[in-house]
Simulated scan of single mutants.
Amino acid sequence: MNKKLAENKLKEIILKNNLCISNNPLGIDIQWPKSYADLYYKKVLNKIYINNKSPRILELNQDNKTKIKLWKTFFQNPKIIQANIISNIDITKSIDDLNIYKFQIIFIDKYPYIKNLDSILEILKDKLKRKGLIIIENVYFNIPLITKLFFNHQARIHDFRLNRFIINNCLIEIQKLSFLEKIIYFPENLLRYIYFLFVSLIYKILISLSTFLN
């Protein structure tokens, strides 16, 4: 399978299995209205699939069964574990139960409801395999938190809010990096952080104008 066909696999699975919320009220939003499928997941998931067709995935605070179905369809018999966390106590209990596991991908949903997210990420990074990813979707506006995540974890921000004008069309990717990798990736990640601040400012101006005009 060539690279282009492989990268189209995700979109084909979403369409073929009617997983998109545009046609399925219980569906997922990564293809529409969000930009994640085309601009992020198709390349990232294909890269993971090439290295490991049956990855271990940890889904935190995920209550959409369609999202789980997507991972099960895209990969070959992936090991998917789900847990609900709000605080360090919750994640400690969950990690104790999962002590033997290391994950290729950890998804965090409903991040605004999680207490001490910064310290929880430190725990989760130790549960990643080499080049594993922590992905936090639907990030918006909380500049103090995003700033903290950027400087403490060198979070890589993928901001698609100017691709489709949706207030939370933005996700964060975090890896367990070596000291050298942190130095190498810092300039690009810093530019991504500055872009996030710029787009947030644009949105705030537009919201203020809309409020004023109405």
Rank of each mutant, 00 (worst) to 15 (best):
I146H: 05
I91D: 01
A37S: 15
N51R: 13
I85D: 01
F198M: 08
A37R: 10
K127T: 08
P78F: 02
Q31P: 02
W32M: 11
P144N: 00
T211S: 12
K42C: 09
N116C: 11
I106S: 00
S94R: 03
L201S: 07
E12F: 08
F150Q: 00
K148S: 13
L149P: 01
D38K: 06
L10G: 03
I205D: 00
K79C: 06
Y49F: 14
I172C: 08
N46A: 08
L70T: 06
S200E: 01
I136H: 02
N84W: 07
L121Y: 04
I194K: 08
T147N: 15
L191M: 11
E12S: 09
K131F: 14
K34M: 14
L19K: 12
I136A: 00
F165E: 14
I108H: 01
I166T: 08
I57L: 09
V199L: 05
A37V: 13
F160G: 02
F212R: 06
Y193T: 03
S200A: 06
I166Y: 14
W32E: 11
G132H: 03
C170H: 02
I205V: 04
N152H: 12
L70I: 04
I166S: 03
S94L: 09
A37P: 12
Y40G: 02
K182C: 13
N46L: 05
R56C: 14
I202A: 00
N88S: 12
A37I: 15
N24I: 07
I167A: 13
N17F: 13
N84R: 01
S87H: 10
V44F: 04
Y111H: 14
N168A: 12
Y113L: 15
L171Q: 05
W71V: 01
I105Y: 03
K69E: 15
N8I: 03
D29G: 06
K53W: 07
L70P: 07
N24A: 15
Q76H: 13
Y41S: 07
T147V: 04
L149V: 02
I95P: 01
K65S: 12
D63R: 05
I172E: 10
I105D: 03
L124I: 02
N52Q: 11
L145D: 04
V139F: 05
N169H: 03
I174C: 06
I91W: 01
Q175E: 14
L190H: 07
K93N: 00
R130E: 13
N17I: 10
N61W: 10
E122W: 13
I105L: 05
L5K: 10
Q104H: 04
N142Q: 09
K93R: 04
T66H: 10
D63A: 07
L201G: 06
V139M: 08
R156I: 00
I14A: 06
I183V: 08
N99C: 06
